[in-house]
Write a protein that binds this DNA or RNA. Structure first.
Length: 108
DNA sequence: AGCCTGACTCGGA
DNA sequence: CTCCGAGCCAGGC
């Protein structure tokens, strides 16, 4: 892992930490807010590399309002955490982004 | 270097 | 709605 990457990851985590309870953000949105526009995948990598428990990774979903497919037990866990914060899923397993998307006042 | 994969996304068919 | 294709970039082989 390069130095450059570590910095990018830290910037991403910094932003993810700002997502309030009961709100979600997409990978692409986080890339944008982290100054890494167009690099949504990098956000995904950053999430999978997480070890820091202070980062609310469960509030990060994909642009379709779905939990990105990966380990099924992880996905269940993520959904459970979100529902515990009041985020509702439709019958197809999607979150209404218009309603739950985090919209920071200052992009910062 | 090429080639493939991946917690992604957007636009078009 | 689904299915590509392209754009994106890091990492492993």
């Amino acid at each position: 892992m390069t130095v450059h990457e570590v910095r990018a990851y830290q910037r991403i985590y910094q932003v993810v930490r700002r997502i309030p309870r009961g709100r979600v953000a997409t990978y692409g949105q986080l890339a944008e807010l982290s100054g890494l526009g167009g690099q949504a995948r990098l956000v995904g990598y950053a999430m999978s590399a997480l070890e820091d428990g202070r980062v609310p990774w469960h509030r990060v979903i994909n642009g379709q309002g779905r939990i990105s497919p990966r380990d099924p037990s992880c996905a269940r866990q993520q959904r459970r955490l979100l529902e515990a914060e009041g985020v509702r899923f439709d019958p197809r397993g999607r979150v209404e982004l218009d309603r739950y998307r985090w919209r920071p006042r200052s992009p910062r």
